[in-house]
Design a binder for these strands. Structure first.
Length: 670
RNA sequence: CGGAGCGUAGCGUAGCCCGGUAUCGCGCCAGUUUUGGGAACUGGAGGUCGCAGGUUCGAAUCCUGCCGUUCCGACCA
């Protein structure tokens, strides 16, 4: 692509409305422009990135047997009423004013309605159906550019199975496909267990990219032994010790004491708040739930939803007096007169005694509360939110809480939608059952935004993985120099057959602007043709990520350059149908991933672990070779001549398959 | 939906408190000189100051309403 004919409106100054780095850089690099709040126009440069992401998604979805659809964004209100989601979604769903239609925020209903008519026998199952399509959600507060928009592109997939075991298989396929997708997109991500109650499902995992721009909080450990959304995370938390002193509970005056901190000072327990049982009132339809957690803990509303259902909500301050007889700060588990209140406490407080809590009378508390003795009807659940630095449940690792961007989410839905819409199949005995479903989503623009959040510097974006809009930008420093212009144009005409290349042939644009634009738009490799280089018979190649410059002889530049690309980046950037054959060249630079694989093993299955480890090395210069035992079976892989990663043959085979999928070329031993 | 801010040329802004027909930078157009890290000089184009109403001899500026937009919170497969 010639830049002189490519619409790339870069901007030098920071846009005033943008706060997060990805939003600023998407505007500055000419990827997007805002049309109205939460709605963005995609310009050619941005569209290239989104299309590349979609390509990766399509390949991985097709690889697990997915079939691509394209469903309407408009759908009838009635369909949504059948599953109850017209009301559940509330204001988040866009409604058409002059027809009984909505703009779909997701497509469980529409896909299921197709399944209902066509997937009618166990022989029709299983199926994986997906689409990449525009979704509409009337977000109350769009923010951070495309990270939370009212219109966005989503890959949504749905699995249809005849058994729960089948659902597990479909789900696991997606779990692996998603790992492949985000890895190929150049993201560092966590796979966390997630809340699934709202979708009516059981298992659920989210794919999270760590970033300060994220809206979720996740809990991870150093070695990824435990990864969870904070909404459902658990940790090791010491129980409050039972003292068995059998002191009588007694009311005492606590004038103007509203918070745990004030209470701790008042009763001289400033260093230990654990026996100050903190009460909160939640409204659950017609009834109420009084929760108790240690004073230094917070109750998790998501955990309450898991226990009591999705509609539970915190009581409004003005409701509390009517429900309990006291305002916030004086509520407690004793002397409850309202029989609609259920009392629950966190597991840390199980059978605890000598507790202090509110008296359900303003400015009064009780001390020496013994849950076992005084609140016999109390129920215990895990309802606390974990805290940074706590130990995991097995006490082996320390947890860290960090912000993250949700780029993907996979669900085991079960039969909620198939039952609601009557989508059933006949089994081998002729009995009818609802189809068992899964639902799997990926945010396309979010991948790009998350990638930029993780890969940028003060000069601009640094694309890596397979989503770079171009592989190479060729810069002709000065088009007024006819000889130079001619040479650069010649390189362009030949290179465009082998790599995705953007040719900065703009006339009357100074070199400095071209260099700065190239850094801003973040294309991985810059090829610079200039007078300075021409005099020395060299062409300059700059690696955007490292700033490292290579100087290549101009006589045999094309082949040498492609060889360099292969050497510094594995050959995935060189197109498969390129006329250039990398193996005819002696590479003078050590490759960063180069390994031998035995071809003896025919059967293999994917094992993710080694792949993840190897990908951790992908930006380093490493040499990896497989190790064999005495029977010439692969037992491991050696990296940089020192680190041996043990693995099974099947793992290496999987690696082979994955690299094949990546357009890497495995070099087989001769 | 609660709280706060902003709306002036394509972009970024000054002016507003204290009323007198709009500042500066970038960009854009023409010309000359430059040409490896966002050039210099000269000349030029471009603005119903978000919209509507009000106060006033006079409103970007003061008042009222509305709209848009951003941030914090609430909310959120």
């Amino acid at each position: 692509m010639r830049l002189s004919q490519f619409f790339l409106p870069t901007v030098k100054e920071e846009p005033a409305d943008a706060v997060v780095a990805s939003h600023k850089l998407m505007i500055r690099s000419g990827m997007i422009r805002q049309l109205t709040s939460g709605v963005y126009s995609y310009l050619p440069f941005g569209l290239r990135v989104f299309r590349k992401i979609e390509k990766v998604i399509r390949e991985e979805m097709n690889a697990i047997g997915g079939e691509e659809f394209h469903l309407p964004a408009l759908s009838p209100n009635e369909l949504w009423a059948q599953t109850g989601r017209l009301d559940d979604y509330g204001d988040t769903i866009f409604r058409i004013k002059n027809r009984e239609l909505v703009l779909a925020p997701t497509h469980e209903e529409v896909f299921t309605s197709i399944a209902k008519l066509n997937l009618i026998s166990y022989k029709d199952l299983p199926k994986i159906w997906y689409q990449i399509q525009t979704k509409f959600r009337n977000e109350a507060r769009p923010r951070s550019g495309v990270l939370r928009g009212r219109q966005f592109t989503m890959k949504d997939a749905y699995s249809f199975d005849s058994s729960w075991e089948g659902l597990d298989i479909s789900y696991d396929k997606h779990a692996q496909a998603y790992r492949n997708i985000f890895t190929r997109c150049g993201l560092n991500f966590y796979v966390v267990t997630a809340f699934s109650g709202a979708m009516g499902g059981s298992d659920s995992e989210e794919f999270m990219v760590e970033s300060d721009a994220g809206e979720d909080n996740i809990v991870v450990t150093e070695n990824n032994s435990y990864c969870s959304n904070i909404e459902v995370a658990v940790s090791y938390a010491e129980k409050v010790e039972r003292k068995n002193s059998n002191l009588q509970a007694e009311e005492f005056h606590t004038p103007n004491i509203k918070t745990i901190e004030e209470l701790s000072k008042f009763v001289n327990t400033e260093n230990d708040w654990t026996r100050l049982a903190k009460s909160r009132i939640f409204v659950n339809g017609d009834s109420y739930v009084l929760t108790l957690v240690c004073g230094d803990d917070e109750v998790s509303e998501t955990k309450l939803q898991n226990i009591f259902g999705q509609n539970i909500r915190p009581g409004h301050p003005e409701e509390l007096m009517e429900i309990t007889g006291a305002d916030a700060g004086s509520i407690g588990p004793l002397k409850i007169t309202n029989d609609k209140i259920t009392v629950v406490a966190d597991l840390r407080l199980e059978d605890a005694d000598e507790l202090i809590s509110g008296a359900n009378k303003n400015d009064y508390h009780f001390r020496n509360i013994d849950f076992k003795r005084d609140v016999p009807s109390i129920k215990y659940y895990d309802i606390r939110t974990v805290k940074d630095g706590e130990l995991t449940q097995d006490k082996k690792d320390k947890i860290r809480i960090t912000k993250a961007i949700e780029v993907g989410h996979i669900f085991k839905l079960g039969t909620k939608y198939s039952e609601a819409l009557g989508s059933t199949f006949l089994d081998e005995q002729g009995n009818s059952h609802p189809i068992i479903m899964g639902s799997y989503g990926i945010g396309v623009e979010r991948i790009a935004a998350a990638h930029i959040e993780q890969n940028h510097d003060k000069f601009g974006i640094i694309w890596n993985g397979e989503i770079a809009p171009f592989d190479v930008v060729l810069i002709c420093a000065n088009t007024n120099n006819k000889k130079m212009f001619k040479q650069a144009t010649g390189f362009y005409n030949k290179l465009k057959n082998s790599v995705d290349i953007l040719y900065d042939d703009r006339v009357e644009v100074r070199a400095g602007i071209k260099f700065n634009d190239a850094d801003l738009i973040g294309i991985p490799y810059q090829v610079i043709v200039s007078e300075k280089n021409l005099e020395r018979g060299k062409i300059e190649v700059k690696e955007r990520k490292t700033g490292k410059r290579y100087f290549i002889d101009s006589q045999n530049f094309l082949n040498n350059f492609l060889a360099l690309l292969i050497a510094i980046n594995v050959d995935k950037r060189v197109k498969k149908d390129s006329t250039f054959n990398p193996y005819e060249h002696n590479l003078s630079v050590k490759p960063n991933l180069y390994f031998h694989i035995s071809s003896n093993h025919k059967k293999f299955q994917i094992e993710k672990r080694l792949w993840e480890i190897l990908l951790g090395f992908r930006n380093k210069y490493i040499l990896a070779e497989s190790k064999f035992d005495e029977k010439n079976r692969i037992i491991g892989i050696e990296v940089d001549n020192q680190e041996i990663l043990e693995c099974k043959p099947s793992t290496l085979k999987a690696l082979y398959r994955r690299t094949y999928h990546h357009d890497f070329k495995i070099i087989l031993p001769k």
